[in-house]
Design a protein around this nucleic acid. Structure first.
Lengths: 145, 145
DNA sequence: CGGATAATGTTATTATATAACGTTTAAGGC
DNA sequence: GCCTTAAACGTTATATAATAACATTATCCG
């Protein structure tokens, strides 16, 4: 299923490469301005918001980066290129995200849309909650309080 | 029509009523600033963004209004209060939205999350595409071009 | 080469959302 | 009633997110 990530050496410009690298180095989604503030990025010569947004747009076109709507932030896609839409689990404590495959759920959702005459282009699923680590930490807190 | 009728026992404040009424009167999601710009709203004495956002927050708490993340906009919930999460179909042509029930799909999605140790609080689904009207209009255009 | 196309640089501006702090309003106990 | 208190509200300022407009440079390909 995981086709080799041939995408990467292929067609990224310097700016796009720098932004993708920044996202890969982060352990959670970054906003465009988070990225802009990284020393690595400043050193690479990127210094305007638009520069970041343009790189992000291209990276999203190629499926290498996803936008998390409810955070106005961006994450590196760690599943390789996929045609199936994916969903995100967003931890409201630590801000980290987990990517999950939608599988047949995507079809189910799109099917419901079509029942109403709606032509679906894209499906976005975002779930908020507590990640395993933060859920455990919370449980520990409530035991000792 | 202008009256914020008693919605489910919960009483709304003057500001909340005005904002809800504005959303009910719109045929598509409105941003906070869209709402702020409405004559009805200005006449009701609401004149700062924060006033609108505070009202929206309370309305969302009560499940009377939903936020569309990918539009940064808000819609009146026309399904009455529900504990089941709903999804939205968003027309990229006209900007109108359709609300759809997720039903068992919600459980399926939350189940996948739990498999990974994630405790889900909320599920958001947003689908982009063309509504029935705009899909028909597009088909007509392509026939005559 | 030379012309087209995509990417970038730069500045300014628009759009979206919240902070901070003081005042008013409304609900409930006595 | 009237006191207490929490919620809601008003106002100003500011933070955060995204795009507009236009000039310049790099890249592809005949």
């Amino acid at each position: 299923m995981a086709e080799p990530t041939a995408n990467e050496g292929q067609s990224l410009t310097r700016n796009q490469g720098a932004v993708l690298s920044a996202l890969k180095g982060a352990d959670k989604p970054l906003t465009a301005y988070d990225i802009l503030g990284l020393p690595k990025i400043r050193k690479a010569g990127l210094k305007a918001p638009l520069t970041i947004y343009r790189a992000l747009d291209k990276l999203m076109d190629q499926g290498l980066v996803h936008r998390i709507e409810s955070l106005n932030a961006f994450v590196h896609c760690d599943h390789g290129p996929h045609d199936h839409a994916t969903g995100f689990l967003i931890c409201s404590d630590c801000g980290r995200t987990l990517e999950v495959h939608l599988d047949d759920c995507e079809d189910h959702l799109a099917g419901r849309a079509r029942e109403q005459g709606f032509a679906v282009d894209a499906v976005k699923v975002e779930m908020t909650g507590r990640c395993p680590d933060c859920a455990a930490a919370e449980a520990a807190r409530s035991r000792t309080s």
